[in-house]
Nucleic acid binder design. Structure first.
Lengths: 220, 220
DNA sequence: AAGGCTTCTGCCACTCAGTGGCACTATTGC
DNA sequence: GCAATAGTGCCACTGAGTGGCAGAAGCCTT
């Protein structure tokens, strides 16, 4: 079943209606992600060459690079799916007027989280994050992706919620803070017991709630 | 330890006292950074091979990799010097009791900024950042470095300012927020006219001040 | 249902970043 | 000066990522 967790805005129904060619492509994509996470976890990111991965999935290296932009990319796919869903949620959400932008952003992220497949996704993210923890190049890749997503999010916010000029900076900071809170939540989540979507959502809420106090926290 | 803009906690006095070997090393390092920024700016990051850079500086590739960890690294050196100085400042600063952690962090960063060489440093950072803006791999490298520095900063904060257990998250968030504010400040700074240390400091103050409002900013 | 048309895939050769090893030269402390 | 101890240059090698082209597989007519 291809799409789950790989193409964010799509459920199994849509999937079956896809032309055969697309379904195949999705299947290879999923196979690459799953096998990559498995092999990397087993032997380490550096310990697995692309040739080895491609052999295991029975795909040529050329095809790999038509599906993913880099070796890091394949291992970060699960998280990236979430951020893409976040952008889509941000695009369609209808916040109550007067609501705080920060809350709107947080809710969009929570909604995106709710759209991730209940089965398997969380596990893939955990493997991916643990790997990133001990693989600098993976971590860097993930951070860069977040940064690009933040820019995209700012563009959506600017277009949909018509910011007064001086608030551009504040909006961008709100996004940065959300991203930071999310990272902290994930960090705690992958260490903790039984990582599920629900626990991650709870952690995100907690981290977001801690932000105001983080600014007024006194030393000594 | 080093020379202007290359090793944070040292001025020209100290430099002359260094053994010859060290001074040579520093000189190569500086030559590599300057030439790299020049060539990259001229022909683009991808447009310059390491062999070309090493030829220009008359250094072997082997030596390059003894000085820098990667091609990206050499181009990000100026910013990294600042963050290293920040860690040192954080280590030695003596905040007034009751002061806000966030303010302590911001002041440490401002102090580090003040320690950067008045001549040349700002210009190097501007070149470096502009390059990073159109070179994903450089940007990723920079973000990863910030992340590592944030972790290190948290360790210092934990040790020096003995946090109660539950405030670990809040402290880390405070650091993340500072980093975000700094990034926004730099972003605006490299676009603006006549980038000097002073203007960057002003921009950082502005961005830090905008954080509380960014959390309460309402949509529509 | 068979033809051509399009799109994707496999393969091969290539560039370039980054590493390991060894011989060589230069600095330093005696 | 003279060992000991760096740091350096050179060379060969691995592995990521790319370009090009020939062939296969899905697709779209009639």
């Amino acid at each position: 079943m291809a799409a789950e967790g790989y193409t964010s805005g799509m459920d199994a129904m849509d999937l079956d209606r896809l032309p055969l060619r697309e379904r195949k492509k999705l299947r290879t994509r999923q196979a690459l992600v799953d096998t990559a996470l498995e092999l990397f976890t087993e032997r380490g990111f550096e310990g697995v060459t692309l040739d080895a991965l491609c052999d295991a999935v029975e795909v040529s290296k050329r095809t790999f690079f038509r599906t993913f932009t880099s070796k890091e990319d394949v291992a970060m796919a699960p998280t990236q799916d979430l951020w893409e869903a976040f952008l889509e949620e941000l695009e369609v959400c209808e916040p109550a007027p007067g609501q705080t932008l920060f809350d709107v952003l947080r809710d969009a992220l929570l909604a995106a989280l709710g759209r991730m497949p209940a089965e398997g996704w969380a596990h893939r993210v955990v493997l991916s994050r643990r790997l990133a923890g001990r693989t600098p190049s993976m971590d860097a890749h993930g951070l860069a992706f977040c940064d690009r997503t933040s820019r995209a999010a700012l563009a959506v916010v600017r277009r949909r919620f018509a910011l007064p000029g001086g608030d551009e900076l504040r909006a961008r900071l709100a996004i940065d803070v959300l991203v930071a809170a999310f990272h902290r939540a994930v960090e705690a989540w992958v260490e903790g017991p039984a990582p599920t979507r629900g626990r991650l959502a709870a952690g995100l809420g907690l981290a977001c709630g801690a932000v105001p106090e983080s600014l007024t926290l006194a030393v000594r």
